[in-house]
């Protein structure tokens, strides 16, 4: 990916588009940044002669173009309201802005394009879609303050992310539903403070980077590949599934930390109903992660008589093991440093 000069160009322009959106001080500038981001992300998606990635880039283009036109329309209405004191209702326009941004980020009432589109991508593009493409819309959502729609979207996102992933056998769909679930948590942390959103986003990006890195190396796309692949290396098997649990947010691992912060802040804001819905549905996501890990964590497991020795000494494996160390022991380390300081 990084030896291809046109891809380097498009990645740079995509990053610039997101930065334009995040740093702009008017809605028109934010719209322009979103457009630049879209225009440079589409060529990254569509590989040559690949049927599914072309379709998913088409799907991404149609939804994002629709969302950005609605965004610009409601921005014009908002400016009209601000400058000419027109009789357009303010909450109506900000609700339209909010829903177009939710469509752009793929949150729950508007999530239908997201898993279908991710089904056609390779792992690097899905990582970009799950993490980087979320920054600009979420940052713009944080500028609006209408709690009701955001609350509905949070509850629907966590529930959809939990229920939708239950019966999936494709790892990409599983990761995309888990991404919708995490998006619900991110939106709820956005209601409280932006710094907690940043912490949550960074931790989520880290964890999903580890998993997609591994999936990309071994070209894993379905669950049955997971069941049969890691039999020959116990370290790889256990660390990969512990990363799964860490992404699901099981307490001794790192993924629990941002959830912990969000839970603390939401309890101090007395948002108990929201918190209960989020935690219960995250329990369901943990259930389907645990069901993947089930066969690997058994004491009695299937073992081959021959050994396919895996080369664990190359750069990718070392990087993976270091990152996995932080993913598994990170919460303990952070707590230790907190008490030592």
């Amino acid at each position: 990916m990084f030896n291809n000069s046109s891809k380097i160009l498009f990645i740079t322009v995509m990053i610039i588009g997101t930065l334009i959106t995040v740093t702009s001080n008017s809605w028109l500038g934010a719209w322009m940044g979103l457009e630049i981001n879209l225009l440079s992300f589409i060529p990254l998606l569509s590989d040559n002669n690949n049927l599914t990635s072309t379709e998913s880039s088409l799907k991404y283009f149609l939804t994002q173009a629709l969302a950005s036109t609605v965004l610009l329309f409601s921005v014009i209405l908002l400016m009209l309201k601000n400058n000419f004191n027109n009789e357009v209702n303010e909450s109506f326009t900000s609700m339209m802005i909010m829903s177009s941004l939710l469509l752009k980020s793929g949150a729950a009432p508007f999530h239908f394009w997201f898993p279908n589109m991710m089904e056609g991508l390779n792992w690097m593009n899905s990582l970009l879609l799950m993490t980087w493409q979320k920054i600009a819309p979420l940052m713009l959502i944080s500028y609006l303050n209408i709690k009701e729609l955001l609350l509905i979207s949070v509850i629907l996102s966590v529930i959809v992310g939990a229920i939708g992933g239950l019966n999936q056998t494709s790892l990409r769909k599983l990761m995309s539903f888990s991404s919708i679930n995490h998006l619900g948590w991110m939106l709820s942390s956005l209601m409280i403070s932006e710094s907690i959103w940043l912490v949550y986003f960074l931790f989520y990006s880290f964890l999903s980077f580890i998993l997609t890195f591994m999936f990309n190396i071994f070209k894993l796309f379905h669950l049955n590949q997971l069941f049969s692949w890691f039999i020959n290396s116990k370290i790889l098997k256990f660390t990969l599934f512990m990363n799964f649990l860490s992404l699901g947010g099981l307490p001794p691992f790192l993924g629990f930390l941002p959830k912990w912060l969000v839970i603390q802040q939401l309890t101090s804001c007395n948002q108990y109903f929201l918190l209960t819905a989020m935690m219960m549905s995250t329990l369901i996501t943990l259930f389907f992660y645990l069901r993947i890990c089930y066969s690997a964590f058994m004491l009695n497991y299937f073992e081959n008589n021959w050994m396919m020795t895996l080369n664990m000494n190359n750069f990718n494996m070392n990087l993976y093991l270091i990152l996995t160390f932080f993913s598994i022991f990170g919460l303990i380390l952070i707590s230790l440093f907190f008490f030592m300081l």
């Binding site: 457009e35 879209l38 225009l39 002669n49 049927l51 072309t54 279908n116 589109m117």
Partner: peptide, 29 residues
């Protein structure tokens, strides 16, 4: 105009992979 050109280029690449631009022939939609 950039967006329209991008849409047309996606249309061209759809036609190159599928042979037509009918929505019923797309697989994952």
């Amino acid at each position: 105009v950039c967006e329209g050109a991008l849409g047309l280029s996606i249309l061209v690449s759809m036609i190159r992979t599928h042979g037509n631009d009918y929505f019923q022939s797309f697989n994952i939609m």
